[in-house]
């Protein structure tokens, strides 16, 4: 398929970008031994702590490790559930 796409000058997949993303992911695993399983556990425990104070669900949390110049960064995007039951948490 790639061959024909090449032949007829169609837009190619940007395989370098794919390589970069795969590398960034695998290097996080290599460096921090964070497998998808342990990552799921981290999210669950994070949610458990946060849920004591805020309306948070483990399944909503998006955690990623970004590689930086001097340090790598753990970034967590934790949406708060907007619901009329928020008083339960307050």
């Amino acid at each position: 398929m790639g061959f024909f796409r090449n032949l007829f000058g169609g837009r190619r997949d940007n395989s370098a970008e794919l390589a970069k993303q795969r590398l960034l992911t695998v290097l996080v695993d290599d460096r921090y031994k964070l497998t998808p399983d342990t990552m799921a556990q981290l999210k669950a425990e994070l949610a458990e702590v946060l849920a004591r104070y805020l309306p948070v669900e483990a399944t909503d949390i998006d955690v990623s490790i970004m590689r930086g110049e001097a340090n790598d960064h753990l970034k967590a995007d934790i949406p708060l559930r907007r619901s009329n039951s928020s008083e339960e948490h307050g």
Partner: peptide
């Protein structure tokens, strides 16, 4: 040639990854 068409990691990509 491969870098130019997005099919090989560029110098910048590798530097960003390895820092």
């Amino acid at each position: 040639k491969l870098v130019g068409r997005g099919d090989m990691l560029s110098v910048e990509d590798v530097l960003e990854i390895l820092a």
